[in-house]
Design a binder for these strands. Structure first.
Length: 144
DNA sequence: CTTCTTACA
DNA sequence: TGTAAGAA
């Protein structure tokens, strides 16, 4: 049956790199349906499903080494547990990022304040001189 | 021209 | 993970 595609076609179809597909094979996760006489890897429907399965696991940040276990022996209950734990992690990450966002805002405000204070300080010290020099033809009064 | 392998950053 | 060289 000619319902098989090459590795580049599969990579395009599933939006993954060819290198990554070979890498999956090296890790014992995804094998070609068969290999042609020219050593080309050929993939069928089963491999496409298998790959989408792998991609889902990867989106859940499941390490490649552990994907093998999930792929072989995993019950529906195990999957629910995996999905829920991933959901928890995502929520934690969101919380951490919001904290970071808050922190960045804080730092930015402090920066603005220090710059303003700096400018006011310069004006206080160099004010009179700056006014005097500003009448000259010197383009850069603050150098003096 | 496409893929494979191997190696390297 | 991406890129490159050389062979098939």
């Amino acid at each position: 049956m000619k319902e098989h595609i090459t590795i580049s076609q599969l990579s395009q179809l599933m939006n993954v790199s060819v290198h990554q597909l070979r890498y999956f094979e090296e890790k014992g996760i995804l094998y070609p349906s068969y290999t042609e006489k020219n050593q080309y890897r050929m993939y069928g429907l089963d491999e496409i499903y298998q790959l989408s399965h792998i991609l889902l696991l990867r989106k859940l940040n499941v390490p490649v080494a552990q994907i093998e276990e999930c792929l072989t022996s995993y019950t529906a209950d195990d999957y629910n547990q995996l999905l829920e734990s991933s959901l928890e992690k995502v929520r934690d990450e969101i919380a951490n990022l919001k904290q970071l966002e808050q922190f960045i805002h804080k730092v930015l405000n402090e920066h603005h304040n220090s710059i303003q204070q700096d400018n006011e300080y310069r004006i206080r010290l160099l004010g009179p001189r700056y006014l005097k020099l500003s009448g000259t033809n010197c383009p850069h009064p603050h150098f003096y």
